[in-house]
């Protein structure tokens, strides 16, 4: 059962991921990414990280992607012309990616020796995450709030139109 669910999810994630890259229309890409992110949330849930799964949906699907779609709609972005040298680039990526894949497979299969098992000691429930977040990681948490503050100010400053001079 677990295995089937995993493979289904993995297939959907890979499929939608490819769709993100392959779709010409950016709004299609964005919707594919939304599906992809919800799939990732499901993966999190299958790894007992319920809190992260929910936050993934709220933050990524609910906030970030809405923003992206918003921008696409506002700017009315049409389909793009493909890059001239895209096959060359694709070749480069495939080559590098293949090397990467081989290298990391080497790690997975040889460094770990035995297949590592998933343990179930502590699950990522809201209570557990909250406890860790506000004790051990309270400083990163506060720093994150500062970061977001800076991002808010920064984005407003970048995106706002300059006020026209009143004559």
């Amino acid at each position: 059962m677990e295995t089937i669910v995993f493979y289904l999810l993995a297939a959907s994630i890979v499929f939608t991921g490819v769709a993100v890259v392959a779709m010409r229309n950016p709004i299609h890409s964005a919707l594919a990414l939304v599906c992809n992110l919800i799939g990732v949330a499901a993966i999190f849930a299958s790894l007992q990280a319920h809190f992260l799964a929910t936050v993934q949906v709220i933050v990524y699907a609910g906030a970030i992607m809405v923003l992206v779609i918003f921008v696409i709609m506002l700017l009315n972005i049409k389909e793009e012309k493909p890059a001239r040298e895209r096959f060359l680039l694709l070749g480069g990526v495939v080559l590098a990616g293949f090397a990467f894949f081989v290298a990391l497979s080497f790690v997975f299969l040889h460094q770990f020796q035995v297949t590592p098992e998933l343990t179930d000691e502590i699950t990522g429930s809201v209570a557990n995450i909250g406890r860790v977040l506000f004790t051990k990681y309270v400083f990163p948490f506060e720093a994150a709030s500062l970061l977001i503050m800076a991002a808010i100010v920064g984005s407003i400053m970048i995106a706002k139109t300059k006020r026209r001079e009143v004559s």
Partner: peptide, 10 residues
């Protein structure tokens, strides 16, 4: 990522 989205999209 959220911060990046805000600034990046801006």
């Amino acid at each position: 990522a959220a911060a990046e989205a805000a600034v990046g999209l801006a």
